[in-house]
């Protein structure tokens, strides 16, 4: 009896030794880069004490996938993004690389997106890419969540990996941020739910088989196991709206852009994890 108990204890401690992921685990990528997956909530997220990356809420197997770039399936897509980045497209005979040089010149950009441009308009990374394509390259714009677009935005996001999310919400961004906040707390759809009902009031709770996260966007575009591709922020917003039986806003529309800013600002302080792995 005693021996059996001892064996169980030994087996348990062995398990604890090999378990590399879990609720309290630290996200270390490639054994060298430590990510901030938990932080004090920024002052403007007044209903939260702590903020948590979506990684914290995922199953151990999913967490492990993100801890090594070879195991992370998103890197197949960032490789495709690199090819697109280097490929000449459009009538001007330019590629992204011709103007921007090495893609690591984009380090830090994703951590600040979306931001207000010099014309006082809120701009997402996707729009920046498409503006370049239509205006400078003479190429056709990609659809908002097209596979090429998520591949390139994920590649650009990867350059900021490990940097803290730091979107500006004051000054010219303030009206957009207020709009986003209003959308976040507005109940919509047949189920009459707002973002906050799940991601603020009930995060860390199971909604049937799904473990609710805080809905942080620091890992987007994210590879989802359910559809085996990269998913954009707006694509994810759309999915959430369908789940609550609402009519989704348009991807790339003013509503989602404002919401993107507001949700990103709730994650100020978390590390950019792009490209992350989620279920």
């Amino acid at each position: 009896m005693n021996t059996k108990l001892l064996q169980t204890v030994a087996a348990l401690s062995l398990l604890a030794g090999v378990a590399v992921a879990g609720e309290d685990a630290t996200l270390i990528i490639n054994d060298e880069e430590t990510m901030v997956t938990e932080a004090a909530a920024p002052a403007h997220a007044e209903n939260l004490d702590r903020i948590y990356s979506g990684w914290v809420f995922r199953a151990d197997e999913t967490q492990v996938l993100q801890m090594d770039d070879f195991d992370n399936p998103a890197f197949v897509f960032t490789d495709q993004g690199q090819d697109l980045y280097d490929t000449v497209d459009g009538t001007a005979g330019e590629s992204c690389a011709n103007c921007h040089g090495d893609v690591d010149s984009f380090a830090g950009l994703t951590a600040q997106m979306p931001r207000v441009n010099s014309d006082g308009e809120l701009e997402t990374l996707t729009e920046l890419v498409n503006n370049c394509r239509t205006e400078r390259m003479g190429a056709e714009a990609w659809k908002y969540s097209a596979s090429q677009m998520t591949a390139v935005t994920a590649l650009i996001g990867l350059q900021s990996r490990g940097m803290p999310v730091d979107v500006a919400i004051d000054g010219a961004a303030a009206p957009y941020w207020e709009r986003g906040k209003e959308l976040y707390y507005t109940r919509v759809g047949q189920l009459d739910m707002s973002c906050s009902n799940c991601h603020e009031d009930n995060y860390d709770v199971m909604i049937r088989a799904d473990h609710l996260s805080q809905g942080q966007t620091n890992g987007f575009p994210t590879y989802r196991l359910k559809n085996a591709k990269l998913n954009s922020r707006h694509g994810r917003f759309k999915g959430c709206m369908k789940n609550i039986r609402a009519t989704p806003f348009k991807e790339g529309g003013d509503e989602f852009k404002a919401l993107e800013l507001y949700v990103a600002s709730r994650g100020n302080g978390l590390s950019v994890e792009t490209p992350s792995v989620r279920n």
């Binding site: 070879f70 890197f75 197949v76 490789d79 495709q80 090819d83």
Partner: peptide
């Protein structure tokens, strides 16, 4: 198209 081998050793 888009075939790319990746290896980790």
């Amino acid at each position: 198209s888009g075939v790319k081998p990746r290896v980790k050793v």
